[in-house]
Simulated assay, not measured.
Amino acid sequence: MVKSPQGAIIYLRNIALPLMLFQVCLTVAYAHRPNVTTSLIFLATLVMLLGYFEFLFRDEWFRLTNSHAYWWLNSTDAREAGLYFRIAQIHRQVMTDVLDAFRVTLFNTALLSDLDLTVLRVNGPNFHSISFAYAISFLALFLFSCRRFVLFALILPILVFTSAKGALIVLLLATSMTLASTVFQGRIVLAGFVGLMCLYIPFVIISGLRVGDYHVLGLIGGVKGFLANPIGHGLGSGGNLATNFGELDWENAQKSGETEAAVESAVGVLLYQMGVAAFIVLGFYYWVGFTVWRLFDRLRHPQFCVAAYGLFAILVNGLFQEEALFSPLSLGLMLAFAALAIGSAARTGVLDPPAVPTLAPEAAGRLQPLGDPGGRP
């Protein structure tokens, strides 16, 4: 609080809110039998329509939402720090309109820059393309687990329009692991996922260092800051939401291969701010994911598989994105989903080891974690 009152409050909220959502949904699912399927399908349809409206009728969307005024105010710190002037000097890119800030290479990665494909990002009703992408990814996964494949297919283009690779990776990993689990044993699929991550994480780090990717540089800065002070620098020290990006010297960070403080990486920011205490928070997230995975391994319910691997994928993304762990529409939604599954399993007695082995299938038959009284999942 002494170092950065506003930053401390922001990051306390970011870290606590997903845990609070988990507790609320766990309690509700244990005490009652909530029917969230209809509500989430309606929400997915509404969000999908809003996404298409913004993409197809952007001028009308900007007028309805007063977007020009919002984005002008949102960029005040960057303008006053001279960020756009430096971009024009170094990269010869002149900002002429608010929309220029939304034009990015497909999925905002240098790996696809040779394709020369640019996307005018959809930001959604929450005015943040990456958080909106994670919300779309979660809703798409829920539709997939409920076998609403038509809506699932219709909502996917919105995810592409946001051009957020992290949310797309979560969707691809969770769906592919769920499909693989219908063919192979759960432990084999889990081992395959771990092996894939052991290849994916080094690949992102190595390729990111070659091109000077800010997410990788921020992760390295966070880890080095943690090693220099394992107790932590305090909430609000570093991090995207407590930093004026217009004042950061990215060119120097790319030359040195690291940032001075943790930015862009949620795991790096947690380690930098909380020190060794960050492992308690991260460990709890993994425990939740493994608990849901064990329930899937026993019951073979697809929603449990989606919740488990969706949570694992988001945690991996947390190495390279702040939004993965600090956005309520990312980790918050996935923890809430996992909590509904765990709470429902505890309510029906499936979570506890059965005294007689034959009781488990009976309990599994009664389990409808996110279902309606009609028996649909």
Rank of each mutant, 00 (worst) to 15 (best):
Y52T: 00
L241I: 06
G275V: 08
C146K: 15
M95G: 04
G218Y: 10
G222P: 10
V211C: 02
C305I: 00
L190T: 09
C198Y: 07
F127K: 08
I169V: 02
L159W: 00
N244W: 05
A346N: 06
I9Q: 06
K3L: 12
C146E: 12
S39W: 06
L173P: 02
L40W: 04
A341P: 05
R148D: 06
Y200V: 13
L359E: 14
Y272P: 00
L209H: 13
A228L: 13
S256R: 13
L21P: 12
E323M: 14
L311A: 08
V28F: 13
D97W: 08
L367C: 08
L151W: 12
V98S: 07
F312D: 10
F132T: 12
A110E: 15
Q185K: 13
T45A: 03
A44D: 00
I136W: 01
A346L: 13
L115M: 11
V306W: 04
T348R: 06
C198Q: 00
P353S: 04
N317R: 04
R300N: 08
P357S: 07
S265R: 08
A336Y: 00
N74K: 12
H128C: 04
T65S: 14
I41A: 00
L106K: 00
H91Y: 11
G268Q: 08
T259S: 04
L143D: 03
A346M: 09
T37R: 15
N74A: 15
A307Q: 03
G234V: 08
F144M: 06
M334V: 12
L359I: 05
R366V: 07
K255L: 09
V28K: 13
P302E: 08
P373S: 09
A69H: 12
L112W: 01
G186C: 08
Q89G: 05
T259H: 07
V350P: 04
L21A: 15
Q368T: 11
E322W: 14
V104W: 01
S330Y: 10
L331P: 01
F161K: 04
E54A: 07
P230Y: 13
L351I: 08
F296T: 01
G7D: 01
L26D: 09
V288I: 15
G225R: 09
F127Q: 06
V356I: 11
S145P: 00
G371N: 08
A8C: 10
E323T: 15
V204E: 02
M177F: 10
L325Y: 12
L43V: 03
V281Y: 15
S330W: 04
L270P: 05
G221E: 07
T358W: 10
T65P: 02
A336V: 09
S256I: 14
T37F: 04
A88C: 11
V350S: 11
P357K: 10
V194Y: 05
F85A: 10
V160I: 10
L43G: 01
L26V: 07
A277Y: 14
F284N: 06
G343C: 05
S39I: 13
I231W: 07
G375V: 10
L331N: 07
P202L: 06
D297R: 06
A164F: 09
L179T: 02
A16N: 04
L159S: 04
H215P: 02
I155A: 03
S131C: 05
L282F: 06
T243D: 13
L99C: 07
V306P: 12
